[in-house]
Simulated assay, not measured.
Amino acid sequence: MSLTSVITRRTAPGRPLPDTAEPKKATFRHSLHAEWIKIRTMRSTLWVILGTLVIGVGLASLNGASAGDEYATMQAADQAVFDPLATSLKGYMLAQVTLALLGGLVVTAEYGSRTIVSTLTAVPHRGRVLAAKAVVLAVMAYGAGLATMVVGFAVGQSALESAGAPYATLSDPQALRAVFGGALYLTLAALLGFAVGTLIRSTTATVTTMFATMLIVPAFGPALPGPLADWTATYWPPSAGGQIVTAYRDPALLGPWPGLAVMAGCVAVLLVAAFLTFRRRDA
C-alpha cells in the first residue's frame, strides 16, 4: 500500500486523525483533582496546618495545667461555672485565624502569581473553579480542625485530671458536640477567609481583615457602648460560633448550635457574594 493511500484512508471523512480529535471538556471532578494538587503543593499549606495543630495542642496543655492548678483556690461561684471543655479547646481562637488565612491564600496566591489566568483558561466555567476550590479547602480544613480538636481535648483534659480539677471524656455528649462542632467551626473559618480572599484578592488585606474580624473585634467588643457591646458578644459571627466549644451555658448568649448557625449564615452570604463577584470580574 502506498503512502498516498495510507494518508487518504486516515483523512477520509468520518475518520479524523487522533491528534485532531476534540479534547474532552474539564469536568467538576477534573477541577477537584487540579485544585487538590494546587492546594496540597502550596508551600504555605503544610506550615499552616502544622501551625494549627501546634497552637491547638500547645494552648490546650497550657490552659489545662494553669486552670487545673487554680481550680482549688477558686471561689465557689467560679467553680460552679468552670468549663473544662472551653479550657482545653481554647486553642481554637488562634486556629481559626490560621485556617482562615489558608482559605484566603487558596485564592490570593493565584492572583498574586497570576496563575489564575491559566486556571480560568483551562476551565472557563468560573463557578466550577471556585466551587472546586471551596470543596477541597473545606475537606482539608475539617481534617486539620478535627485533629486539632481531638488532640487538644485529650491533652487538655489529661492536664485537668492530673491537677485534680473537673474534666470531661469523649463519652460525654457535650464533649462530642464540642470536638466535632469545633471542627465544623474551624471549617467555616477557613471558608470565611476563602470568601474574603475572593472578594479582596489581596493577601495582605485578607490577613488584616481576618485578624480584625476574629480577634480584635471580639477582644474589644466589651469596651463598646452598652447595647453594641451586648450585640457583639451575642451575634458577632466568630463570637457566636465559638459557643460550640463551651459546656457552660450563659443565658445571655446564644446556644452552641444557634451560635454556629449564625456563623454559617454569615459565611454563606459572603460565599454567594464571592461567587457572583468572581464570575463577573476580570481576572
Rank of each mutant, 00 (worst) to 15 (best):
L32F: 08
L170N: 01
T246D: 01
G152E: 00
A76M: 14
P18L: 14
L160A: 11
E161M: 13
T4G: 00
T198D: 04
P218Y: 10
I116M: 13
A109P: 06
A80K: 15
T108H: 11
A109C: 03
R114N: 11
A65Y: 02
Q75I: 01
A95E: 09
L228G: 08
Q243A: 11
S88V: 10
S61I: 10
F153H: 06
V6S: 12
R126F: 09
S118G: 12
V129G: 02
L271Q: 03
R201C: 05
A190N: 00
D83A: 09
G152Y: 00
T234L: 08
L120E: 04
A144N: 01
D69Y: 08
T87L: 10
V6L: 14
G127N: 10
A65D: 01
G56V: 08
A122L: 14
S118A: 15
W47M: 08
M93C: 00
T204V: 15
V207T: 09
G127C: 11
T45F: 05
L271I: 13
A252L: 09
R40K: 14
P225G: 11
L186S: 09
Q75E: 13
V106E: 05
L53G: 10
W47Q: 08
M140S: 03
L260K: 04
Y248G: 00
P256E: 07
A163F: 07
A122P: 01
V106C: 10
M74G: 08
T121I: 07
S171Q: 11
R29K: 13
S158G: 15
F180I: 09
A80F: 09
A21L: 15
W257G: 02
G58S: 08
D19R: 12
A65K: 01
G156N: 05
T187R: 04
R15V: 13
A72Y: 02
L215M: 15
W47G: 10
A261F: 02
L228W: 14
A189S: 14
T234K: 14
L59P: 01
S5G: 00
L53W: 13
T234P: 01
V155D: 01
G56R: 04
A26M: 09
Y71S: 02
T11G: 07
R281I: 10
V117H: 05
Q75D: 14
L176Q: 13
R201P: 01
P16D: 03
G103P: 00
L89H: 02
G145P: 04
A100G: 12
A80Q: 15
E110F: 10
A141I: 06
G156L: 04
T213F: 15
A72I: 08
T27N: 11
M210F: 08
S113E: 04
P251I: 13
P218C: 12
N63M: 13
G156S: 10
V107W: 12
G14M: 06
A274V: 08
A233G: 06
E110V: 11
I200W: 07
L89I: 02
G193T: 07
M140F: 06
T246Y: 09
L62P: 00
S202C: 03
F211W: 04
R177W: 00
V262W: 09
F82Q: 12
K24C: 01
L120R: 09
R114S: 14
I244C: 06
M214I: 07
V207Y: 07
G64H: 03
V107R: 13
L276D: 05
A261H: 07
R279A: 15
V272W: 12
G197P: 09
R280W: 11
A168N: 11
A247G: 15
Q157H: 05
F275Q: 13
V54D: 02
T121G: 04
G91M: 11
